[in-house]
Nucleic acid binder design. Structure first.
Lengths: 135, 135
DNA sequence: TTAGAAACGATAATCATTATCATTTCTGTA
DNA sequence: TACAGAAATGATAATGATTATCGTTTCTAA
């Protein structure tokens, strides 16, 4: 049975302990208090875990890249005005029968889903004119 | 009626002409053949258009950031092994009644959806041991 | 027309990520 | 058990995408 490197295991376990997606740098900051580990190793491990389908990443509106395990997978509502993300309680796709696709032999491990729009407070702040633009 | 800046309009129109998501730099390379425009302006316009809900972006497995208009919105199957992305012909969420959410007053403009896994050729190349890991 | 604001282009600065390289650890074999 | 080659690691240099700065130009409204 193929197994992960020690660094990959450590990164995955640390990710599991988070209750929110976390950046690579924050992960490093947290892990280095427990053990001697280089930032490059974190990036290498994250990349490997991504390709293994164990870890996923997301880029926030502000451009920050955040990682979490696929088990912790959540979907979000993200407000385009204030940038806040609100996790969904359930996946709208759950139990949904997917239509046959171009490559219907594609083996799906997980998916990401994010809704963009305006949260309640920002709907109030945003005037109608700002919403519908002439281009 | 609020309107976009000339640069925003130009960026949006150039994006519309693409038949694939494109990087900021490639966009700049393409636009500067037609007009005098700085790279910083491209980034400024993309950021503004994102916040206006007109443009979305996606980070590939390889880490490249690609932009497209929301009208051109597509969903993808992405292979974790070879990194290729295959656009879906239709959105599985289409016509789906969304369950009420924590903030059910959230106003949704658009959403992104991406499936990750293995494409047919890579399923063959990838041995079973590689798929299920001991951690 | 004209002052102030907004947008712009050029480019310097920043900073997340990747590449490099010397060292350490692992693996399998004699 | 000893050892050679491979893989993994940490430190850090290099890269490159993005952002900040700033002087100039264009727009807006009085």
């Amino acid at each position: 049975m193929t197994h992960c490197t020690p660094a990959q295991t450590a990164v995955l376990n640390t990710l599991r302990q988070q209750n929110q997606p976390i950046s690579a740098q924050a992960l490093h900051g947290q892990m280095r208090t427990q053990q001697r580990i280089g930032l490059a190793t974190i990036y290498r491990a994250l990349d490997a875990l991504k390709r293994l389908g164990r870890v996923q990443h997301r880029t926030t509106l502000a451009g920050e890249t955040l990682y979490n395990t696929v088990e912790q997978d959540q979907h979000y509502l993200t407000c385009l005005h204030c940038g806040q993300s609100f996790p969904l309680k359930a996946c709208p796709l759950k139990g949904l029968q997917l239509q046959p696709q171009p490559s219907n032999s594609f083996e799906v491990f997980y998916h990401t889903l994010e809704f963009f729009g305006l949260c309640q407070p920002c709907q109030v702040e945003t005037t109608p004119e700002e919403k519908h633009l002439e281009v």
